[in-house]
Each structure stands twice: as structure tokens, then as C-alpha cells.
């Protein structure tokens, strides 16, 4: 009897050692939580995956701070990687544990924001653009300039995301300023003051955006490239436009919290996330651009992302977002709140 108990205890312990449960912290519906992807990972490694979600970068950081040990993989936008590293929330990445690492775009793995202090702290996963998307039923010809947001013809059918930083960055681009080095905040305030009466409502999530667009509330609205490809795949009559003034570029990395207790399983999960087999399938459902050059080469010719990255003129116009200081962030938030309160 005792021996039976002992063996069963041993079996349980052995199982525990082999099969880890890793906890992933990400935006909801953003790649890592696809059912088939988790099933494939579990089949390959025996580990299971549990998800937790955040709705803003600040919430992500707060969750990492307040729940040490609770997460094994976390998605961090490159503009926040340095902050997370400085607070001691994430560990450097051991690239030898990521088998696909050699295929990742060297300009992304060498991205200075992902390498705070000279060490890689986030495996570049995907990148994309924040630009504008238009309803193709309203636009016979695609707009070429951001000024379409200010065009009186579309008054009441324009939308941007309810985010002070992004609003300021769009106004900066429209005025020809660098989004990472804003020089004339007064001009931006004036430009946004003109923009607000044009708008119908703010959007806050992809789901929101899709509903407003399909109901005809939006003619032109800011949008994320990855979401645009998903919305197109769902059949919405939209086109993603990179205007001549440029677009905001963002880069997302996958990091391992320093308090993680399943670092090996976490590295294996990240490896699967940058695997071409995963990406090609994800791209068909609508995804941002992969960091894996081999994966991009495997995409079909008609893929949204393939067309996006193959146009060098588009890529050249992208202004990649740098980390924003807390003081600047607060200034933008205040400006945005004042403008909204005045409505």
C-alpha cells in the first residue's frame, strides 16, 4: 500500500517536471492564444498554456510588478522594453534557446530598443504600422495624404483611437514633425482642435473598430496594419493606406519575466511563436509582419503582409516609435484630456 502511494507520488512528480504550465501575458486575440497554435505547442512539448490579458501597456507593467512569478512569457512593445528591464522585471534572452533565432531579421534582433544595456531582452516577434484605413465603398480613389482626416467632406465619419500619445503623433506627422522629437506642441494642439469636430467617436479595440466600420459610422479611421489584414480577411470593405506623410511603426517582442519559474518552456514557446510554420498559418487569418525573414518568404504572393513589406517606398516612410519619457507622456495625456473635455 505504501509502495503504491509512493509510486503514484513519483509518477505525479515526474509528470510535473515534464509538463509545465506556462502563463502568457498578452493582448487578447493577439496570436499567442490561437487554439491551434497552443494545441501544436502542447503536442510538441507536453506543456500547457494559460493566458492572461492586458488592455494597455501600463496594465501589463503593473501586472508584472504586482504578480511576481505569475508569468512566463510576456509581450512587450519595444518602446517599453527598456523600462521593464530597468525595473528588473525581465531577464536577458539566451538566443541559443531559440532555434529559429538565426532566421530573424538582424535589423530587428539588433534593434536598440529591444537591446537595453546592450543585451537582448525581447525576442522580436512582429512589427506593424499604425496608419489609416478607409472604407472602399466611400473612397473610389485611395487618399494619399493624412489630411483626409481633416477633410470636411468626411465630417462626422472620422475616428482615431482614444489615446493621447497616438493622437499627438498623428498630428505631428500631418504637420511634418518627427513623432519622436516633437518640436511644436502648440501647433499640434491647434491641429487636434480642428480634428475633434470631424470625429464621430473614439475607438478603443479592434472589435469596436470593426463594428463601427461595418455600420458605416466610419469612412476613414486610424488603424493597425495587423488588424486591417484581419478585418479584410473577415470581409470588411476596407483598404489600409500609408500616406505620404508616413505611418507610426511599432515592434513587439516576447520577453521572459525574471521571476518566471518555467524559463525553458517559455523559450520553447517563443521559439514556436517565431516559427515559419506558425506564422504562415497565422498570416492567413490576419497577422502583423513577422520578424522571421524565412517566414515572410514563405507567404503567398497575395498576402497583405507580403505586399506591405515588398514595397520599399512604404517601408521607407515608416517612423518607428521610440520610448517616450513619463513627463512627455503626461503632457500629451493632459493635452488630450483638455481637448476632450472641451467638447
Amino acid at each position: 500500500m505504501n509502495r503504491l502511494l509512493l509510486t503514484s507520488a513519483l509518477v505525479l512528480a515526474a509528470n510535473g517536471a515534464l509538463a509545465d504550465e506556462i502563463r502568457v501575458l498578452n493582448w487578447q486575440g493577439y496570436g499567442t492564444d490561437l487554439d491551434w497554435a497552443i494545441a501544436a505547442y502542447t503536442e510538441k512539448t507536453g506543456n500547457t498554456v494559460v493566458h492572461e490579458y492586458f488592455t494597455s501597456e501600463q496594465e501589463m507593467l503593473t501586472k508584472l510588478r504586482t504578480n511576481p512569478g505569475a508569468y512566463d512569457v510576456v509581450l512587450i512593445n519595444s518602446a517599453y522594453t527598456a523600462q521593464a528591464k530597468d525595473e528588473g522585471l525581465i531577464d536577458p534572452i539566451d538566443s541559443s534557446m531559440i532555434q529559429n533565432f538565426a532566421d530573424l531579421d538582424p535589423s530587428l534582433t539588433g534593434n536598440e530598443d529591444l537591446n537595453p544595456g546592450g543585451a537582448l531582452h525581447g525576442v522580436p516577434w512582429t512589427w506593424g504600422l499604425t496608419s489609416i484605413a478607409v472604407n472602399t465603398n466611400d473612397f473610389a480613389e485611395m487618399p494619399t495624404s493624412l489630411s483626409v482626416l481633416w477633410d470636411p467632406q468626411w465630417k462626422g465619419r472620422v475616428s482615431i483611437r482614444d489615446d493621447g500619445l497616438e493622437a499627438v503623433q498623428f498630428a505631428a506627422m500631418a504637420l511634418g514633425q518627427n513623432i519622436n522629437q516633437i518640436t511644436d506642441l502648440d501647433a499640434i494642439k491647434a491641429k487636434l482642435t480642428e480634428l475633434l469636430p470631424q470625429m464621430t467617436t473614439f475607438w478603443s479595440s479592434e472589435n469596436d473598430w470593426n463594428q463601427f466600420m461595418s455600420a458605416g459610422d466610419f469612412a476613414v479611421a486610424t488603424y493597425w496594419s495587423g488588424s486591417a489584414s484581419r478585418s479584410q480577411a473577415k470581409g470588411l470593405p476596407i483598404a489600409f493606406v500609408v500616406p505620404e506623410e508616413g505611418a507610426i511603426g511599432w515592434l513587439d517582442g516576447l520577453s521572459i519575466p525574471s521571476t518566471s519559474t518555467h524559463k525553458e518552456a517559455a523559450a520553447a514557446f517563443i521559439d514556436w511563436m517565431v516559427d515559419p510554420a506558425f506564422y504562415v498559418k497565422w498570416d492567413a487569418e490576419g497577422a502583423p509582419v513577422s520578424s522571421n525573414t524565412k517566414a515572410l518568404a514563405e507567404l503567398p504572393e497575395t498576402s497583405f503582409n507580403r505586399k506591405l513589406v515588398e514595397d520599399p517606398a512604404t517601408v521607407a516612410r515608416v517612423q518607428f516609435m521610440k520610448p517616450v519619457s513619463d513627463a512627455d507622456r503626461e503632457t500629451y495625456l493632459k493635452l488630450w484630456q483638455d481637448l476632450k473635455a472641451a467638447q
Binding site: T55, S56, Q58, E59, T62, L196, P197, M199, T200, T201, F202, L333, Q337, K340, A341, Q343
Partner: peptide, 19 residues
Amino acid sequence: GRVGTYYGTVIEDQFVAVF
């Protein structure tokens, strides 16, 4: 929508959006 900024929404923003 655009005109929906009130005292309550600002408080909510402090808790949910900007922490």
C-alpha cells in the same frame, strides 16, 4: 462618442488606462 467625456470617464481613465 466624441462628446462623451465626463467626470466619471476621467476617473475611469485614471484607474484603467493610465494607472
